[in-house]
Amino acid sequence: MTKKYITGFSAVAVLAALLITGCKRETFKPLAAENFELANKAFIRFYNAALSTTKNYLYQGDVPLTGAAVAYGGVFPSSAGFYGTVNSGQQNLLIKDTTTGATQNQVTVSANFDAGKRYTIFTYDTLTSVKYLAVEDVIEVPADTSARLRFVNLPFSRTDVPNIDIYSKKANQNIFTNVSPLSATSFIPYASVQSDTLYVRATGTTDNVATLNNFIASRRRSYTLIFRGNYNATSGATARTLTSLLTY
């Protein structure tokens, strides 16, 4: 009886050992696909500030990156603060209207996208003369409760327009100064959870050419202010305007 008991115990022990060994093999199974699938990707957003454009799509090679069309004033991805992905390295992305007979010119975005970094591609100008500005989104999540804010200056005009200041009513001062057309600033610290009114002014003047009311930045988030539209139009669908975009 004793011998049978020991033999049975040994069989159970061997079975347990095999099960444990099997579990260990599963535990250390390579997970490269899960861990490294984004290792060679860059992150991008696309903001359309090109007047009168309605059906813009972004492609990498023959692969569409956008789903729904991006119209004037629209953004991809449409969810605030989100990014799409592209292969890193030197890339030629294509922005185009795929509608048969479309008059919009195709735009090739030729840029080097570093793996792991974030970028926003802004289009501007008009339907038949679309151009682009690609900007790296250097995101700094503050350790305190402040936010971050930058300004992109993309108005359309057939004549020269002045540089721009952005005046904060809450701060009672300019927070961006002398920003040239078709350029973007770096992110700056900005007070969060406070309603502010922001004014677009020609540099060195106090005349407001556009206004953003009730702007409130959430804690530790990054925003982009965009001045777009026809600089000489004060009404209508393409009138000059200042808008905000949650970037991160």
Rank of each mutant, 00 (worst) to 15 (best):
A69R: 02
L65N: 04
G74W: 00
V75R: 08
Y231E: 07
N230D: 09
Y47H: 13
F187T: 02
F122Y: 13
Y223G: 10
D207C: 07
S235H: 00
A115M: 06
A68C: 02
A50P: 01
A16R: 09
L38M: 06
T108L: 05
G229I: 00
F9L: 15
A17W: 13
S10L: 14
R150K: 14
R118Q: 13
K170S: 07
T2P: 15
Y132T: 02
S168P: 06
Q194N: 10
Q90I: 04
A32V: 00
Y119H: 07
A32I: 00
S180P: 05
S192M: 07
I139T: 14
A42G: 08
V12R: 08
S222N: 13
F151C: 13
P77G: 06
I44F: 08
S78E: 15
A49S: 11
K29S: 11
N163K: 13
L31A: 10
T128K: 02
T177A: 11
Q194T: 11
T145V: 06
L242I: 10
A68L: 06
R228S: 10
A217G: 12
A32T: 07
P64E: 11
Y167W: 13
A50Y: 01
F43Y: 15
S79T: 14
Y47N: 12
A171S: 10
N40R: 09
V14C: 09
A33G: 12
P30K: 04
K55H: 10
R158F: 03
E26D: 14
